[in-house]
Design a protein around this nucleic acid. Structure first.
Lengths: 139, 139
DNA sequence: TACTTTATGGATGTATAAAGTCCAGATCAG
DNA sequence: CTGATCTGGACTTTATACATCCATAAAGTA
């Protein structure tokens, strides 16, 4: 029940880009600034490109740019771009067959958890994050 | 961002026990009824014992029993018994040093997520789950 | 055209944690 | 004493997240 490093990388890259929302960034710059392995970041960026969150340009002076404004990009779509649909437990996939199906008291809790997480993710945009740019006290 | 199989096993075992809250159950019974590998379940039960959620009795006619009523056992303590404290991302551990600490817009979102998950877990007891014993439509 | 820069997509490798197994020992009822 | 049961640790297996590498395509520059 943790944020994967991959999602963290994606979010960090996008918040970095959000600081110059009309700018263009190549992988090397993002990678160095955010301390993310370059080749791995390349794979993550491809998923963001495929989902329409950023666009890419090849060639000299190429790179990536946000397709929408930071206020229009929420964490749910970033999550889904890199991880696929949020699903707390595999048996929540339709089509899954479970021997314990009849009498399964826990499924509704996992569902409730999932709904609450998706809500938080969906309600948070890149812009929100930049504005909340004070580190919370995690003590 | 998924429920681990281990947590699922723990919750299933405890909801199973909650149906006869004053009963005594040996590992073999729980293991067979819930389709959980016996030796692995033994390890999980030990953690529940150590955290005071169940008590154990050795010897013939031994086994496990709930220490409290199902209404008094919430999912947060089950989670923490098997997984330790819920932490969305490692850098939320106090004492962690992160090169990106100054200017970290995402930490507050992970914190918000974590708080909302803990709340749902804490607000759900074993009894609640038994009463909600209708499978939600996960379509 | 030739050259450089950059992203692309797939193949492959690695490291780590989760999941699972095994067993000798302790405890206890009958 | 015997058989059932939990205990605690060591150990093995498996899955997958994370990371690397490379040949290729695309695009700009001279």
């Amino acid at each position: 029940m943790q944020v994967s490093r991959t999602l963290d990388y994606a979010v960090r890259s996008l918040t970095y880009m959000s600081r110059r929302p009309v700018g263009r960034f190549n992988i090397k710059e993002i990678s160095e600034n955010q301390h993310i392995p370059l080749n791995y970041l390349a794979k993550i960026m491809r998923r963001l490109v495929n989902k329409g969150i950023v666009r890419s340009m090849v060639g000299p002076d190429g790179g990536y740019a946000l397709r929408k404004s930071p206020a229009e990009i929420n964490l749910r779509e970033i999550y889904e771009a890199v991880e696929g649909e949020l699903r707390m437990i595999d048996c929540m996939d339709k089509g899954t067959i479970c021997v314990l199906y009849e009498n399964c008291p826990q499924i509704s809790v996992w569902d409730k958890l999932q709904i609450s997480m998706v809500k938080v993710l969906q309600d948070t945009t890149l812009e929100d994050m930049l504005n909340q740019n004070t580190r919370v006290d995690v003590a």
